[in-house]
Amino acid sequence: MSDRVYAKDAGWKDMVAGGYIPQAGNAEEYSVAGWRIVHPVRDDDACIDCLFCWVYCPDNAVYVENESVIGLGFDLEHCKGCGICAAVCPKDCIKMEEGSMPAEDE
C-alpha cells in the first residue's frame, strides 16, 4: 500500500471528514490478482486488433498502445478473470486458462 490510502492502523481522528479518501484513483493500488481462478491468454497471431477485449474489459486490464493490443498481454494485478474479453473476441483467440497466473509465473 502506498501513502495514497490511510495507514492500516489509522485512528478515527486521522479520518478526513465525510469519509473521503484524500486522493482519487487509489483503486489502482489494490491488487485483485488473488480473486482469479482463471486468467486470459491471447493468441497474438490470430488477433486482428479489433480492440473489443479492450473496450469491454470492466477493469481496464487490457494493455493497449497505439491502438493495438497485440503482444502486450493483460494487467494481471487488476484482471478479475471474468472472461468477458474471451466471450466478446470475434476470432476466439482469447482463452481463459486454469490458475490465477500463467504457469511460468507461478
Binding site: Y6, K8, A10, G11, W12, K13, D14, M15, A17, G18, G19, Y20, I21, P22, Q23, A24, G25, N26
Partner: peptide, 28 residues
Amino acid sequence: MPLLDINNPYTMGPLDLWDYYIEHKRSQ
C-alpha cells in the same frame, strides 16, 4: 472539497468495510 474542482481530485463515498467504517462514524 467540491468534486468539480478537477485539479484536486479525491474519492467520495467509497466502499468502506469493517476496516475503516467505524472510524468514519466515530469521526462523524
